[in-house]
């Protein structure tokens, strides 16, 4: 379980998160949703210790992230941030291989190589393994970064907008894959842009608005026209398909 207590964060004079306390259940797919600028990415980055904590505490499976060595944390959680801008000329296989670094510290074993192959295969990248990242399309590159996070083999997988730049088919595949990982015992926290992906695949939804928690619970309770309408300040209809909420936000 990830436990966040009294977390506030500001960037410059702007307050991004205000006194957030929440629990993210273990063994579930948790979706973070909310309008632009609600603080989703900041919250995820803070949990993934990519930014220093200002106030509040965060613990992951009982260990305070401010106290736990970063290498130890890297074996427990993998975080894919949104800002994986490209400066490096690496091959896909090399990038995914670095996902195993927390485990082998530069001396990959046969098992590490095996896991890298599996991650490549899971994202349909085996054929692209020898290509340089900069020679790939945005979506393919995104998949390579997801594969790297996957290869890290951590209990917790934190993904910031993994579906950005992906086409429909891959977006659905990634979400299905996250559910499969949950079945295999991992816990996933994912920031999703499209509310319907959260509604269809997540077990638990946390909605943020203006740096506060606006709603929290299973998709059926969060993805209602009233709750979402308040969060996004728009009128929308919600229907159901196969027992899952379907938000008609585009009509």
């Amino acid at each position: 379980m990830i436990c966040v207590k009294n977390l506030s964060h500001s960037i410059g004079k702007t307050s991004v998160l205000q006194d957030i306390s929440l629990e993210i259940p273990k063994g579930k797919v948790t979706a973070l949703v909310g309008p632009n600028g609600a603080g989703k990415s900041t919250l995820l980055s803070l949990i993934g210790r990519l930014m220093p904590l200002q106030t509040g505490r965060i613990s992951i499976d009982g260990s305070d992230i401010a106290q736990t060595p970063t290498r130890e944390l890297a074996r427990r959680m993998a975080i894919l941030s949104q800002t994986n801008s490209l400066g490096s000329r690496l091959r896909v296989r090399e990038l995914v291989g670095f996902g195993r670094w927390p485990h082998h510290q530069g001396r990959p074993t046969h098992e590490d190589e095996q896991l890298v192959m599996q991650a490549l295969d899971a994202l349909d990248l085996t054929a692209l393994g020898n290509r340089f990242l900069e020679e790939l399309s945005g979506g393919q590159r995104q998949r390579a970064f997801i594969a790297m996070a996957l290869a890290q083999g951590a209990d917790w997988l934190l993904l910031d907008e993994p579906l950005a730049a992906l086409d429909m088919a891959f977006a659905r595949r990634i979400m299905a894959q996250l559910v499969a990982l949950r079945e295999a015992g991992r816990s996933i926290v994912v920031v999703v842009h499209d509310i319907n992906h959260a509604a269809a695949w997540a077990d638990h939804v946390i909605a943020l608005k203006e740096g506060r928690i606006a709603a929290e619970g299973p998709p059926e309770t969060v993805c209602t026209s009233q709750v979402l309408g308040d969060i996004f300040d728009m009128e929308l209809r919600v229907t159901q398909i196969e027992g899952k909420p379907l938000v008609l936000h585009h009509l």
Binding site: S88, F98, W101, P102
Partner: peptide, 18 residues
């Protein structure tokens, strides 16, 4: 390896435990 990882940016470096 450390320098190659650093070339991927601060976030990635941190998330890999460096």
């Amino acid at each position: 390896d450390r320098f190659s990882i650093l070339g991927l940016g601060r976030e990635t470096t941190t998330s890999l435990g460096l």
